[in-house]
Simulated assay, not measured.
Amino acid sequence: MRIFSSQQKLTLKFAALACCITLITGCAKSQPNTFTFTADLPPDFAYVAAVYYEPAEGETCTVETKDNLAPVFNSQWRKEYKPDSEVEIRITRKGCPLVVRRIELEINSAYGKDRGDFGRESAMVVIRHELKEQSRGTFSETGESVFYGHCQWLFRTSGKPRILRKILDCKAADEKGERKRGRPFSAYTLDQLPGKTVKMKIMLAKEEKPGWGDTWVAVPGGWKRCLGKGFEDERAYCDGNYTDFSTFKMVDGRICTIYPGCTE
């Protein structure tokens, strides 16, 4: 049996302590500096995400906007779309340590071929150093957090030709699709995010509805556009006249009498 001197025992204790510190530091350094943002969207929908950074808590440095432009994912969503975006949590710009603060989201879907034939809505993810427990998103055992939204298409006509246009209306929702006030939204703390996945799940209403009241009349098979005072009357409220209707033009050029089927 080997007997150690007091000096040797002290040396061994320091060596063991140094080993523990190395292990702890190694674990801290190996923690991912990214998380994944992704989305489960209806067919032909896409999101655009702009990620904004601000100086970390306690930092006195500042960075001009031109040197701190937000990275954007899926900016060319019409041509190329990827549901998964890898977001950095901490970055350094111009020598200033920054942390992710928010992700501004656009929910987009095209309903025609022209550049203007699309609907757009907004959503948001915010990140803070601290949040009350009831205010922050929660993660499953697999490391995924899901927040929900519910969207619906609203239709209207525009201009003297009465061209049909569509508006995308999205609200926050629960997992069953029940709409809530405000846009789709979730919040997290910085220490929740490393290596995790944040998912936005959007549900779409099966039926569309008029953009505002007293302009269309529900009939078997769809909706008919009130005539109003004539084609010069762009607003064309029904105003009690539910027997005189007008044609309208679909974005593909068809002249129709009923939406969505076009012909009765």
Rank of each mutant, 00 (worst) to 15 (best):
F118W: 11
A123Y: 04
A123K: 04
V125M: 07
V125F: 02
R128Y: 12
H129L: 10
H129W: 06
E130H: 11
K132A: 14
E133F: 02
Q134M: 04
R136M: 13
R136A: 15
G137S: 09
T138I: 05
E141C: 04
T142K: 15
T142V: 09
G143E: 08
E144D: 10
E144Q: 09
V146T: 13
V146F: 01
F147T: 08
Y148W: 09
G149Y: 01
H150I: 07
C151W: 04
C151S: 06
W153R: 09
T157V: 14
S158K: 12
G159W: 02
R162L: 05
I163Y: 07
L164A: 03
R165H: 02
R165D: 04
D169G: 04
C170L: 05
K171C: 07
A173Q: 08
A173Y: 01
A173R: 03
D174R: 07
E175H: 13
K176G: 06
K176R: 13
G177V: 00
E178G: 14
E178S: 15
R179W: 11
G182I: 03
G182H: 05
S186Y: 07
A187H: 06
T189L: 00
G195Q: 06
G195A: 04
V198A: 05
V198L: 04
L204T: 02
L204Q: 11
K206L: 07
G211W: 13
G211N: 15
G213D: 10
W216P: 00
V219W: 04
P220F: 03
P220D: 15
G221R: 01
K224S: 09
C226P: 01
L227H: 10
K229D: 06
F231G: 06
C238G: 05
C238M: 02
